[in-house]
Design a protein around this nucleic acid. Structure first.
Lengths: 403, 403
DNA sequence: CGATAAAGTTAAGGAGCCTTACTAGAGCCG
DNA sequence: CGGCTCTAGTAAGGCTCCTTAACTTTATCG
């Protein structure tokens, strides 16, 4: 496999930086450790560890946190990364809710807000995001200058060139150019934008059931349909960031490979897989099976739980369609785990059975299927996890500058 | 994105090795360069380049290859990597043909053989591989000890634990355990086994139309159906090496999402996508449309080229089914390029039109679709490219040992 | 033939790591 | 209680390898 990683020359400064980085990372995974312990674990000599750790402490990235007495011998001084050396911002812009959180470098949430998103225009939405973020940072008591990076999760894909979000049909006005730049400016925090399904996948990988999976897929079923793919701990985005846009999967409802010839397209089938699987599709299916009244995905699932025949059939159909989606993803990606989340997350217990059953009929590849553990928080936590990663890098790289 | 790369400490020796590596890699991409030029390009100082290059030369990895006079000033001494510092072996085990090639470190083929594979048992096949490989190495005039690594391409997936190839239905006896170990022993060359579609993808990426693609998919249509995925220059294999096993894609012929309810499974449709798209499926389709006689995929395509109505319909159907495959892959992976290869490679010109047309109806995502440039050689060249990469690493790492 | 420019070497200096040898502190044991 | 032993951490010296700067060599140009 070609493609090298590093292109920079390795001089002594890089050597030093590399070792400090190594120590800091090890300290983060261990939580707390003495110098002697770090020397044993990293393979560096004790003097080197002492001096590198002194640099890190001078930069404010690390500090003493107490002592520990070994079974015999001198008590060791323990060090730990300083969680307050920087903060990261996570934002989840959904159709119904706006969620914002600030986390410290340990990943702990220090402040959070969930507000209803009633914005119907771009200016209202950006204003709401900026105001809420300012309020959350204020609530946290953190110096705003210490918030070094932010990540926003949203439906659609951010186009770096045009500086706008594309394919975000459910958020009115959100596709205008320059919105993110303006928020970035007003908040004074560098912002990145990522697809919500991708972030949910990363969140579930970092804090939820995905931990340790070699390749896992997170299917986000809400107002829309999306999939996030995490491969070896990294997001898999495809050539243009559109990987996992499974709303576009070929779907017999649209124009089956065989019906093309005969021209016998069937009437009531939705045109796109997205419309067939998303939350609104459940409602439509329930209606076509005879349910009536004010329906939402939640009420249909609740009715199915009560044994309502039409609702049960709608849920069954939804399970079948999800199975189709999972089967396609399994054949192409070979995941060891598929997580179902999003709006239907609360009702995955009802769906798991039908999905697994139909999957048996569709394909011999059967990855483990599990419900989301983070539920509605997956996108937000994925955003903070991503921002956290960048923030840790930034704080480390700036360590020589000021402090 | 979490997951760090290096875990080892950076001491002085690693520093030196890293810089030598940097120089060697740069020399490989440039082909040939002077010391001053390398110093400018890598950012290392001239004395460092001189001394590191002297080490590499002492190890036999690099040598002088002449001089070049700049516009003004002293003539420069040019260096280049020594292609004879090691060799790599590539093997393509197909149902009809066995292909073996030996390449030098520059990737140039120094000897090659293509023989018919008539083996019908495991012993015959391993014997044929070993004999042919020995013969090719002999023909090349290369010291067998200098062949440091080999890669074998085959249908199916190699299971490291059970030490056998799985899912290779078209090769009788090839699934037995320990075969690869035995060949490795008899040849005295470390061997790896990879899926043929994966290697073809890598071959097409390295030497063919895939060059520079951020994410590209190679669909191998032959006796079977497979897909290789190259992401950022690296093979994407999924959790268990089964990524791209698109023979398992859900296919309405098997049991469409809708026919499940109505129970109106249609008669003549193949059960699995693999059977519907592979070369033999073209023959069956042609037959069902009225062609008769001794048919092969090639004869059907030839007849279509002549205007035979039944053959044209069969090709049309094949194009439609391939479009289904491409659409599924596009929605999940977002490739910027999809290459069609394998046995149908010669006839891709006939298929491209129908595939593109049906794709328009299936999905708004339309990656570039191109025919394979390497044709039947894709698997073999992918095998040599993969073996070459390992061989280069091995030769570099052994540089201090003997030489 | 001297000025200029580029390639490459030599010499001096320094950064950072390792090893060795030491000090500091804590428990155990006679 | 003093010495022994074991671990943590520090100090000094040495080694490797990189950089800077000056110098040599060799080519072209006026």
């Amino acid at each position: 496999m070609p493609a090298r990683d590093t292109v920079e020359p390795w001089n002594r400064q890089r050597l030093r930086a590399g070792n400090e980085r190594l120590l800091l990372d090890r300290l983060r995974t261990l939580g707390t450790a003495s110098r002697a312990q770090l020397a044993r674990e990293t393979g560096l000599s004790k003097p080197t560890v002492s001096s590198a750790l002194a640099s890190l402490e001078a930069a404010g990235l690390v500090h003493e946190v107490g002592t520990r007495a070994p079974e015999r011998g001198r008590t060791a001084v323990l060090y730990a990364p300083d969680p307050a050396a920087g903060y990261a911002l996570g934002v989840d812009i959904g159709r119904g809710w706006l969620r914002v959180a600030v986390v410290d470098l340990d990943g702990r949430v220090v402040a959070r807000a969930d507000v209803r998103n009633r914005a119907r225009a771009s200016a209202a939405l950006t204003g709401l995001v900026v105001d809420t973020a300012r309020r959350v940072i204020g609530d946290s008591g953190v110096d705003p200058a210490r918030v070094v990076h932010g990540v926003i999760g949203t439906p659609g894909v951010y186009d770096e060139r045009q500086r706008r979000v594309r394919y975000a049909m459910h958020l009115p006005g959100w596709g205008r150019a320059g919105l993110v730049d303006r928020m970035c400016e007003e908040l004074g925090v560098p912002l990145e934008v990522h697809n919500d399904a991708n972030l949910a996948a990363l969140g579930e990988y970092t804090y939820g059931v995905g931990a340790g999976s070699r390749l896992f897929a997170y299917i986000l079923i809400g107002p829309g349909l999306g999939m996030g793919i995490v491969s070896g701990g990294r997001l898999f985005t495809g050539a243009r960031g559109l990987a996992g846009e499974i709303g576009f999967l070929p779907w017999p409802g649209r124009r089956g490979p065989k019906t093309a010839e005969a021209g016998t397209a069937r009437a009531r089938e939705p045109e796109r897989l997205e419309d067939a699987v998303s939350g609104t599709a459940v409602v439509e299916a329930a209606r076509s099976f005879g349910m009536s009244g004010q329906l939402s995905a939640k009420t249909v699932f609740d009715a199915a739980r009560q044994g309502d025949a039409a609702a049960v059939r709608a849920v069954e159909l939804e399970g079948e369609r999800i199975a189709h989606t999972v089967a396609a993803a399994a054949a192409v990606l070979d995941p060891d785990l598929v997580v179902l989340g999003g709006g239907v997350g609360h009702s995955v217990d009802l769906l798991l059975g039908p999905v697994r059953e139909h999957l048996r009929a569709l394909t011999p590849l059967r990855p483990v299927i599990a419900p989301s553990r983070l539920g509605e928080d997956a996108v937000l936590l994925g955003a903070t996890a991503t921002a956290l990663d960048t923030a840790r890098n930034l704080v480390f790289e700036r360590r020589t500058g000021d402090a």
